[in-house]
Design a protein around this nucleic acid. Sequence first.
DNA 1: GTGAAAGCGCTAACAT
DNA 2: ATGTTAGCGCTTTCAC
Lengths: 327, 327
Amino acid sequence: MPTVRDVAERAGVSIATVSFVLNGSKPVTPATRQRVEAAVAELGYHRNELARALASRKTRILALAHPTAEHRFGSSTTDFITSAARAARARGYHLVLWPIDTDGQEIHDLLGQGLVDGVVLMEVKLDDPRVDALAASGTPYALIGRTRDPAGLVHVDIDFDRSVADALDHLQDLGHREIAFVTAERPGYGPKVRSEAAYRRLCAERGLEPLLLECAPTAPAGQGLMPRLVERVTAVMLMNEYAAFGVLTGLARAGLGVPDDLSVLSFTSPDMGALADPPLTTSHSPGAELGSLGVHALIDQLEGIEPSAPRLVPCTLVPGQSTARRP
Amino acid sequence: MPTVRDVAERAGVSIATVSFVLNGSKPVTPATRQRVEAAVAELGYHRNELARALASRKTRILALAHPTAEHRFGSSTTDFITSAARAARARGYHLVLWPIDTDGQEIHDLLGQGLVDGVVLMEVKLDDPRVDALAASGTPYALIGRTRDPAGLVHVDIDFDRSVADALDHLQDLGHREIAFVTAERPGYGPKVRSEAAYRRLCAERGLEPLLLECAPTAPAGQGLMPRLVERVTAVMLMNEYAAFGVLTGLARAGLGVPDDLSVLSFTSPDMGALADPPLTTSHSPGAELGSLGVHALIDQLEGIEPSAPRLVPCTLVPGQSTARRP
DNA sequence: GTGAAAGCGCTAACAT
DNA sequence: ATGTTAGCGCTTTCAC
């Protein structure tokens, strides 16, 4: 592996000049720049990121801290992670994975290693001790999700208000007025709390009678909703990836069908929705976009670019065949 | 952040001795060891992994190279990744994510940065240029999956022979003799090729008539199989995550049911299988185990531990209600 | 068993 | 505009 020294020698300049050219950190004559670039190309030189990190006190490595148990983005977790890693690389950073299970100590030890410049924290809870640990460490960080009071914290999240409003719009446009909302049983879970709040507020604003239900956060779920649900509403929005199949099954067993007897809108990936019969109308979380935005927000902060206002991104509605005009 | 110097000073020893204690790289008197350890604890010292990496010429960072498009492990990709990261950390390594789309150059540039000691390559194809790029680079690597001729390459993969045999056993035990096998349309895709070969061989050995079918590698899929499938077999194994729902739907539309008219065994996660009605008998890929094994195989290689023979891990059969005794 | 000193390959003052 | 030089925080000979 060639080093700056080899490049400098070959180009007939000092190692400082090589560094200036590589980093654009100081003005350099076009002529010498070219000689350096030629030497770099001829030698197939790549700078050693480790040495650079040590000398510059910037590792250009970010950590993606995520609990191993929960899967907030469900089917879009992979998209999120991949997109975060791509965004990092696009700006010259690397992303390391930190599966974090415990709260304070683990993250503290990891940070102590001095390997990363900042942390992207996934699956942020309303009251999250990891956020406190990060804040105490002084390491820059960006949150995916929000704590109870996220004011002043760098974060990106789903825009639950918009997402629920869009879903309601879709159903109301089809003539529905009795629209239930089903979440997963997860007390204190941010997305549940925020989407329920949005639903309640929107119902009030629009003069709709709210019907909030819950079911299990894992499959199978939703089948038990059935007697109650179809008696009281003509449409349902499911903020629970697993519930849709249960609802369809429960309905079928009662001799009823979608969308004739009930319109179903599920917050899940279109891929998942396509598995159902009929293919579901879905609203999918912006996993990839959040991954990218979160990383950019963190890097902006690291590089002293603008304060980077929190971004809230709505889910995207993809019409399927499980929603139809009210009978 | 305290450094070795601070520790050395406080313990009244040289920085070399501190290093010896921290790494166990040289014998040290119990007494001085204790003094050093005390100083470490008092100062809350963590060694700087970056500096250690530069000086020792071992970064203790591994890359997980994965294509962004394909999703071999489907629903278990997240498990795989998480488990790989955990295994790495358990042995004192970090795992960086490298979403790789192009073939040679990208991986070459990344390796040139000198950030990683080795690479775990996911989604290995039968003929994979990335493997050649890695081999040419001289960087140690481990493959998840196998090339056409994996002899001599460090790799871990699903044991398709065992997995298909176990599935056949399950169905044959239930009295089935006509058992179809459905894969996803993906020419040259390792898992498809190897599982099909296993199916053919096993059918021959057991005197069964093979029926191989394909359908789309994305949802919706499988509905089109229906007239043909149920006329010719009493059971089907689906090596296609998306097909199961289509098969169920197709069957229902024909007024038929599972498992009465057809037994269905799907190679997917039990979570996914639980969504179906009836809950599917599934065989799930050992995503987490492969992630961990792959990382260990790579680290063993890096640390000069035994040659680490290739490990093939079978899928795990989880009986559901979609398979039953042949009518 | 312990210490002194020479780097690892780079960046970033500070000179010139 | 370019060069000299002093580190970044650690590991690792080589002496003692």
